[in-house]
Design a binder for these strands. Structure first.
Lengths: 160, 160
DNA sequence: AGTCAGTAATTGCCAGAACAGGAACATTGC
DNA sequence: GCAATGTTCCTGTTCTGGCAATTACTGACT
C-alpha cells in the first residue's frame, strides 16, 4: 500500500511491497485464467492440490481447513461445491462415524493435472521469465520457510 | 500450491511459492489484526491508501477500481460502505455530472494514519524482522517493478 | 448401562463479493 | 440542434464467506 516511495522507508517495507504487489497482481491474472480455461477458481485448485499430494485415503475436513491458503473457514460449503462438480467425493472414515474423508475423483485428478499444467505456464510467463535465475534463487532462499509451513526465526537472532 | 518439493521444479517455481505463501500468510494475520484494532479490513485500507496518496481533489471510481489490489469489481458497493462509515465522501466532478470524486474525510485521514502505523508494526514483526537486510534488499530489487505499476520486462532480454 | 464433556462436520443467518444490465451524461460528427 | 457512440456509475440478483448454533458421534468416567 502507500504507493509513493518514501526514501526514508526501511528496506523491509520495500521488500514487503514487492512481495505483496507481485502476488496480488499475478493472482489476479492466474485466477481469471483458471476460471476461464479450467472452469474453477484458485480456491478449488488449492483444495485439489492438497488432495493430490495427500495419501489415497484423502484428508479430513479439518486438515483441509488448516492448510487452505485462500479461504478461511467455510470449507464445508467449498467442498460442497467441488463435490457437486464431481471433482471430489466424501467418504466415511472407517472407525469414526462423525468424520469425513475427502477424496479426489478420477475426473478431479485429471482436471487438476490439466489445471496445474496451465497454471505453471501462466506463472512462468507472469513471474518466472521476468526475473533472472539468480534473483529467483535469492527469493526462494529468503522465503523458503514460509511455504515450509511455519514462519522462520528472527533473522536478528542466531538460529541457523 | 503443490506442497511437496519436487527436486526437478525450476527455480522460479520455488521462488513463486515463497512469494505466494509469504504474502498469503502475512495478509491473514494483518487483515485479522486490522479488523480487530482499526475496525476495517484490508480492502478498506487499500482504498484509503490510494486516496491518501492521491491529490486533494480525490480520485474517480474507475481509477480506484483499476488500482485496487484486493478488490475485484464492486467498487461502488465498497465505497458505499466506507462512505457510510464517514471515512470517505463522494463529491461531484465540476464539468462532468456523471462523474464522482472520492475524497478522504478528516476522520478517514486520521483513521488511515493510525491504521498505517499499526500495520507497519505488524508487517515489521511478521516479515521485516524475519529476514536479513541483505535478503530484503535482494527481494526489493527483484520485485521493485511490480509495485512500480506495470510488470517488468523479460529478464532474458536485456533491458537494464 | 448411563451420563457427560469433547470433537467433526453441517446448517442458518447475514454481510460482503461477483456479474450482468441499465440510466444518466459527455463527446463526436453531421 | 440531433443522433450515434462511448463513459461513468449505480442497481438487481445471485453467489460466496464468516460466525455462531446444531447435530451426530466418540471416549471416558461412574
Amino acid at each position: 500500500m502507500q504507493l509513493d516511495n518514501d526514501p526514508q522507508d526501511p528496506v523491509w517495507f520495500d521488500s514487503w511491497r514487492g512481495v505483496l504487489f507481485a502476488s496480488a497482481r499475478i493472482l489476479q491474472v492466474a485466477d481469471r485464467d483458471m476460471l476461464e480455461h479450467d472452469g474453477f477458481p484458485l480456491t478449488w485448485f488449492d483444495v485439489l492440490a492438497r488432495l493430490f499430494d495427500a495419501p489415497p485415503a484423502g484428508m479430513r475436513m479439518q486438515e483441509l481447513e488448516e492448510l487452505a491458503l485462500f479461504n478461511r473457514g467455510g470449507m464445508t460449503r467449498l467442498v460442497d461445491r467441488i463435490e457437486a462438480a464431481s471433482l471430489v467425493r466424501r467418504e466415511p472414515v472407517p472407525g469414526d462415524r462423525r468424520g469425513v474423508r475427502v477424496v479426489l475423483t478420477a475426473e478431479g485428478r485429471n482436471r487438476y493435472a490439466a489445471a496445474l499444467l496451465r497454471h505453471r505456464q501462466v506463472i512462468e510467463r507472469e513471474f518466472g521469465r521476468r526475473l533472472t535465475p539468480a534473483q529467483h534463487r535469492a527469493i526462494a532462499d529468503a522465503l523458503w520457510s514460509w511455504w515450509h509451513d511455519v514462519g522462520p526465526a528472527d533473522a536478528t537472532q542466531d538460529s541457523g
